[in-house]
């Protein structure tokens, strides 16, 4: 990678000494004297910037959803309602008895990793933001709660769990957190889809912009291209020059865009440290992410080269 980079930097330096007689790689076409080269570099940089932001957003969303679902998908809460089916209230002792019985039973089930009965104190903690610290819970009907960690979460296991619990008491409820987690995951999925769509649209726009600019260049240089053709230059000799030119532009632009995007994201992370801490405690660029980010400039170069190649070949095809 470093080596390729050096080659590219050397190439782009050479780019400035147009038409010089030294060196193997020289241009016969006055490509770099074109107005619009700088504009194209800025355009590609902006596009790359947006694509990188969109892609990293999508990575972050993915890691966020993984984090949420892995955090919750093996967790189930058993609730012993304070209110019976017929509307009468259970006493605290009744609830405690049911809770203990349920926990005993749960401990015998092989798919359960841990169980934790929430004590009154735990529940008081949970409720204090709403009720205040000093409310005596003895007078308020509170449900009994048992938090369980499963080894794995499958529909069959949940089914079996429900059966076991209803054997103890038909009122006992099982909350798998599916409802709200599902909504959250759907939202995250939609955002991720949007991010990927944006990245795609930007890519298509960039391709069109590069192809259009190359076509303009060909129009500007059609006389020179025709002369090269007439004195016997093979199509490949001519396309190579425009291709190299396009690749250098794309490389410069996309590298700038990539770096700018990474710097921006680091700044965002710095400035909003706490938020990201809560939402994305473990989001780090892994090797796969890094590979995709590096692939963006490479892809930009490839796209530029192809766009240049096809436009040049189409122009040359008119000549006999």
């Amino acid at each position: 990678m470093i080596k390729e980079l050096l080659v590219f930097i050397r190439l782009s330096k050479k780019d400035k000494r147009l038409g010089s007689a030294q060196g193997k790689r020289h241009y016969d076409l006055p490509l770099n004297k074109n107005i619009g080269t700088g504009f194209l570099i800025v355009l590609i940089a902006l596009m790359t910037f947006l694509v990188v932001i969109a892609i990293i957003t999508s990575f972050a969303l993915e890691s966020m959803t993984n984090h949420w679902s892995s955090g919750l998908e093996n967790k189930v809460t058993i609730e012993i309602p304070a209110e019976k089916n017929n509307g009468s209230l259970r006493t605290n002792d009744e609830i405690k008895a049911l809770q203990n019985k349920s926990e005993e039973k749960l401990k015998t089930l092989h798919y359960i990793k841990t169980t934790k009965s929430l004590s009154d104190l735990d529940i008081q903690d949970l409720l204090s933001p709403w009720l205040g610290k000093n409310v005596s819970l003895n007078n308020i009907p509170l449900p009994g709660l048992i938090s369980i960690d499963l080894h794995t979460n499958t529909p069959e296991i949940i089914q079996n769990l429900k059966k076991e619990m209803s054997n103890i008491n038909a009122d006992i409820k099982i909350d798998t957190h599916e409802a709200w987690l599902g909504d959250l995951l759907k939202l995250a999925g939609a955002l991720q889809f949007a991010a990927i769509t944006i990245a795609l649209i930007i890519t298509i726009t960039t391709v069109t912009a590069i192809a259009g600019s190359i076509r303009t260049r060909m129009a500007v240089h059609s006389e020179e291209v025709e002369l090269l053709h007439l004195i016997g230059a093979h199509d490949s000799y001519i396309t190579r020059q425009l291709q190299r030119h396009a690749v250098i532009i794309a490389f410069k632009g996309s590298l700038c865009g990539l770096l700018a995007a990474l710097v921006t994201l680091m700044l965002i992370k710095l400035l909003s440290g706490e938020i990201t801490e809560v939402l994305l405690p473990e989001f780090q660029l892994n090797a796969f992410h890094a590979l995709i980010l590096i692939a963006i400039p490479a892809l930009a170069c490839l796209i530029a080269a192809m766009a240049a190649r096809f436009t040049v070949l189409r122009t040359l095809a008119i000549m006999p």
Partner: peptide
């Protein structure tokens, strides 16, 4: 193209590349 390389042409309107030196 290969045949054209064996043909030298002096064009009526020269057709020199304006950004290249006489040498190039």
């Amino acid at each position: 193209s290969s045949l054209r390389q064996r043909i030298g042409v002096v064009f009526q309107e020269f057709r020199l590349l304006s950004h290249l030196s006489a040498f190039d």
